[in-house]
Each structure stands twice: as C-alpha cells, then as structure tokens.
C-alpha cells in the first residue's frame, strides 16, 4: 500500500515536471498534421461528415429509424463522439512504438505519448463541434440548460479513453499484434453503441452488448445534454465511476511496467 502511494506521488510529480513536454508533443503533432496534409484540420470534420452522409442514406431511405432529432444531427453527433474515441485510441495504440527512438534513448514519463495522442484528437473534436453547431442551427435543434453537463461528460470520456489508451499502447509495445486486433475490435464496437442508431428498444445479444458497453451511457449523456436538453442517464454515473477506476489501475500498471519499455521495444 505504501509502495502504491509512493508510486502515485511519483506519477503526479512527473506529470507536473514534464507538463511542458506534454504541451510540446501536442504542438508537434498538430504542427505536423498542418504541415504534411493539405486539408489539415479539415480531416477532423470530413470523416464524420462523410459517414453521416452515408448513414443518413441508409437510415432514412433504405431502413428508416425513428430518432428524437432529425437523423443527420443525431448521426453526426454520434459519429463525432465516436470518432474522437476511436481516433484517440488509434493514435495511442502505436504512440509508443512509433516513438521507439525516444523511448529507448531518453527518459521521461512515457504516459506522455498516449496522453498527447488523446489531447491532439481533442483538438479535432473541438473543431468537429463547429459542424455540429451548424447542423443544429440548420435543423432548428435548440440548446437547453443541460449543456452545463458537457464538460463533465467530456472529462469522463477522456478519462475512459486514457485508461484504454494506456493499456493498449503498452500491450502493443510488448505484443505488436495488438494494433491489428484493435482495428477489428473498434470496427465492431461502434455497432454495439448508439452511434448511428437509437438503441432503447434493442433486444437480443446485441441489446445486451449495447447495455454493458460503457460508451453507451457516455454517448447518450452527450446527446441528452446537447440535443435533447436532458440530464445524463443514471447509468452514466456507473460509467464515470468505472472509467476513473479503470484509469487509476491502468496508470499504475503502466507506471510499474514502464521501466521495461526500453528493453522490450
């Protein structure tokens, strides 16, 4: 127990000491994106928009579904959240292995890599919100007081993403197949969450999967706060508690295995 407290203290102290590095890593990735791609941040908007268009065709013309707000707003909101989650993980999974050069040569808290990957995607997430606002204005979706929940919900999503990012980036360092496995899982996972269709009345195996999926209450909380002017569902509290607990465990495990990274990479 005493060792655990010492570890936590060290973890915090390191984050404070290296906060400038976290900043610089984010700046680096953003600068690189801006320099190397023509569209720059446009990509942050383009992918969810394209998906929204595709799913709008499917779920309004081919297999219509009932949504509380116009379908494009509903779908874009879901895809915008999911895109943040999935791309943050996609970048974090390989964040240690693509920076092998630094990991094996210079010491600093390695958590910086997955953390900065997530925060870079948070910038994209912020950029993507502009389109959401535009869609809401276009479809006359009003915003209510429940929007005050938004910072809480974003925080919970970041913490949950960070927990998984820590575990996956570390796993990919020791076992490189994790990267491929991740792509499969994340593709399937999206359909077990209320991203592009409402899931209230979903039954069967998929229904069960959706209900135990921690991303379900998070996405529903977002939609409630932004589109429907309602407080997060009770399941959101459980998801939040779970996210923080998982994050604490993941970080301690990461910190304790950290010293092996340089040898294993």
């Amino acid at each position: 127990m005493r060792a655990l407290i010492a570890d936590c203290r060290e973890m915090m102290a390191e984050q404070v000491e290296y906060r400038e590095l976290l900043r610089q890593m984010i700046v680096r990735d953003l600068l690189l994106r801006y320099k190397q791609t023509i569209m720059g941040f446009g990509w942050a908007v383009f992918m969810p928009l394209l998906n929204t268009a595709i799913f709008s065709v499917i779920f309004t013309s081919i297999a219509p579904v009932q949504t509380p707000v116009p379908y494009p707003v509903f779908a874009y909101c879901g895809l915008w959240i999911w895109n943040f989650f999935a791309s943050a993980l996609r970048f974090s999974v390989v964040s240690l292995t693509t920076n092998a050069n630094l990991v094996s040569k210079i010491y600093f808290p390695r958590e910086i890599f997955p953390f900065s990957s997530i925060l870079v995607c948070l910038v994209d997430f912020a950029v993507g919100s502009i389109v959401l606002v535009a869609l809401m204005v276009w479809y006359h979706v009003p915003v209510g007081l429940s929007l005050v929940w938004l910072p809480v919900i974003v925080t919970v999503q970041i913490v949950f993403t960070a927990a998984i990012a820590l575990l996956l980036s570390m796993a990919n360092l020791f076992y490189r197949d994790v990267k491929y496995l991740f792509e499969v899982v994340i593709a399937v996972w999206m359909f077990a969450a209320p991203v592009v269709y409402p899931v209230e009345r979903l039954g069967g195996t998929l229904g069960t999967l959706v209900r135990i999926n921690p991303m379900t209450p998070i996405i529903e909380a977002y939609r409630g706060a932004i589109l429907l002017n309602s407080a997060p569902p009770p399941t959101f509290a459980a998801a939040a508690a779970g996210a923080f607990a998982l994050f604490a465990i993941a970080w301690v495990v990461f910190h304790r295995l950290e010293f092996q990274f340089a040898e294993s990479i």
């Binding site: 000491e17 290296y18 400038e20 590095l21 900043r23 610089q24 890593m25 700046v27 680096r28 600068l31 690189l32 320099k35 190397q36 050069n101 630094l102 040569k105 210079i106 600093f108």
Partner: peptide
C-alpha cells in the same frame, strides 16, 4: 544527458520548433 542529443528532432519541423521540442524532452521549461 549528452546522449542522442538529436533523438527528439522531427525532420519536418523547423529548427526553432525543434529547439522547443527537444528542450522539453530534456526537461526544460518553456
């Protein structure tokens, strides 16, 4: 550590940007 003093450099970034990045990697404040 005067070891791998250019390890954090990214070829696409300018010298100025790299100074800030590498400085941070070495633990310097902005």
């Amino acid at each position: 550590a005067l070891i791998e003093v250019a390890a954090g450099f990214h070829p696409e970034l300018t010298g100025r940007e790299n100074v800030y990045l590498q400085g941070a990697i070495m633990g310097m404040k902005r």
